[in-house]
Design a protein around this nucleic acid. Structure first.
Lengths: 158, 158
DNA sequence: GATACATTGTGTATGTCATTCACTATGTAT
DNA sequence: ATACATAGTGAATGACATACACAATGTATC
């Protein structure tokens, strides 16, 4: 069970589902990046801002692990965010090697504005759809995401 | 009607739907790019290969318009694809300025292999789900995509 | 305490993707 | 013949991401 190479073709009626999912994902990301760009943020930098907003001040190493990129890359991202005034580097109180990344006032304000904007758009995107349909949509996304992870680890250990 | 700034909050029960959609899109793209990378393709280059596979030999200008990037960028992408043996540039029969991009044998083979692989994975990803649920999932994606486009044009003309 | 090892951040170099601007060569219309 | 539009590319630039090397600091071990 749970084996990728032994499926009894559970869904033969949709040959191009995955292709449509790819298109959907591309559209979503394009929309997301457009919204971020209006506030002077890129996807990569917004990820950092969002994580700091969620988890509070963190070291660059923690951010690198959370995002799944190299520490060197986070250095560059924080460089840009610091220059554009979204975040600030502060000394870690216990570890003199580490630096804590925290939001500036402007960083917090932009984050709040973005969240509100997306909330507003979200209401429009799903407006009129039966609540049950939206619920099931989210559930299907979750199911597919879990299996995507399975496929990823399966092909990684090959 | 169809106005973004006048929604009667059709779906108040899901505060973080859009955030989950963002996460889903990111996972899908990550999965897609991992599959492409195994065959030596990046997302950008695979887009070119896919369009040529679908629409037959095309000029770089047509590809640029279809992808939505500058012609200069397509030049670079085709440079890479030519060097790695996926596509070939041929003279346009009527327009001596233009170059036709067409798949090599290797390009066609890799494309076919990728399509088969994604087909196989797709069956797994949606296995066990009621056909009606998958159908509605696709329908919801389509609805949201249409409204995403509306939001995009609305904010662009602001 | 000294030694060895691990961890944090960053300089340097490299590569992909994407843009703008300038330019040549070619097509097209007047 | 002249003017304009189009197709592709060189040069320069920038964001994102990597690998490798290195200094500074923390931690464990003898």
């Amino acid at each position: 069970m749970n084996d990728i190479h032994n499926v009894s073709t559970g869904c033969p009626a949709f040959p191009a589902v995955l292709e449509r999912v790819f298109g959907f994902a591309a559209s979503v990301q394009q929309y997301m990046e457009a919204g971020l760009a209006e506030h002077g943020l890129s996807r990569a930098r917004a990820t950092v801002v969002w994580l700091v907003h969620r988890g509070g001040p963190q070291t660059q190493r923690e951010l690198a692990r959370a995002i799944g990129v190299t520490a060197r890359n986070v250095t560059a991202l924080v460089d840009g965010l610091e220059e554009s005034g979204f975040v600030r580097r502060t000394a870690h109180p216990e570890d003199r090697r580490a630096l804590l990344v925290q939001l500036t006032d402007r960083g917090s304000a932009v984050t709040a504005g973005l969240a509100a904007e997306y909330e507003r758009h979200s209401a429009y995107l799903f407006a009129g759809l039966p609540e049950e349909q939206v619920r099931q949509f989210v559930a299907t996304m979750d199911t597919v995401m879990v299996r995507l992870a399975q496929v990823a680890t399966a092909t990684a250990n090959r």
